[in-house]
């Protein structure tokens, strides 16, 4: 939804039906990218539930077919991109943006998988520096920067300068969001956050444990 909102703000006007459709399509392509990541991550992390429902790969008839399903969700992005933006002047830029953001998110996932393997947790691996890398790459690029960059390209007004400016605002914003999310996992009230946080129990590489490790004495550790 932040793609059509960004486009409308850039134009300082309500969108025509065509503009709304195109920008919402770019928004849905962002959702497809997220679905591709989440379906894959849940398999890698052997997660149980997602959005209050069993993870896709845990559906009895799905299993490891979910790996191929994730690839197909990714492929759907480029089917839609071609169908609606083939003749857009920024077609190649839009395509490169999706590819680059995908790669960045995979770097974040790599760092996360290696730093905090589900089965053997080694706190010596944790650090706020790695935490920040994981958050920025695994989350902030695709969920905060991507929608605004798509809006700039869609309006054909993207420049290295405004893309950089968007990055300088949105990447710290994404980091702030994730730190807050990690904090609320433990200190938020279940009735406010809609779930019972289990990050500590699950040995998650969250902001809290990294901050705690930074300030503890060797004995407290």
């Amino acid at each position: 939804m932040s793609v059509p909102d960004s486009v409308s703000m850039l134009r300082e006007a309500p969108l025509s039906e065509q503009e709304y459709f195109e920008s919402a399509t770019l928004g849905w392509m962002t959702e497809l990218l997220q679905a591709f990541f989440l379906v894959s991550d849940d398999i890698m992390d052997t997660s149980i539930t997602r959005r209050g429902q069993p993870c896709w790969y845990r559906q009895p008839h799905v299993g490891m077919i979910a790996i191929n399903d994730a690839f197909m969700l990714e492929a759907a992005i480029y089917i839609l991109l071609k169908k609606y933006f083939r003749s857009h002047v920024a077609y190649v830029d839009l395509m490169e943006l999706f590819h680059e953001i995908t790669f960045q998110t995979e770097l974040g996932q790599l760092c996360d998988l290696i730093t905090a393997p589900e089965d053997k947790v080694n706190l010596d691996n944790f650090s706020l520096g790695k935490y920040e890398f994981i958050v920025v790459y695994k989350t902030a690029w695709y969920s905060f920067y991507l929608p605004v960059a798509l809006a700039l390209y869609h309006q054909n007004i993207a420049t290295p300068k405004n893309l950089k400016q968007a990055e300088e605002i949105l990447i710290p914003l994404g980091t702030y969001f994730q730190v807050q999310d990690d904090y609320l996992d433990n200190f938020g009230l279940p009735e406010h956050i809609g779930k019972i946080g289990t990050d500590i129990l699950d040995n998650k590489c969250s902001w809290l444990v990294n901050k705690a490790l930074e300030i503890v004495t060797p004995e407290q550790r």
Partner: peptide, 25 residues
């Protein structure tokens, strides 16, 4: 004046996109 989208408006676009992808398949 910019206008913000509603979830309903945004979701209304999705079925068409699903059909597009399936048509391609």
């Amino acid at each position: 004046m910019a206008q913000t989208t509603t979830l309903k408006q945004f979701e209304a676009i999705f079925p068409k996109l699903v059909e597009d992808v399936l048509d391609h398949a």
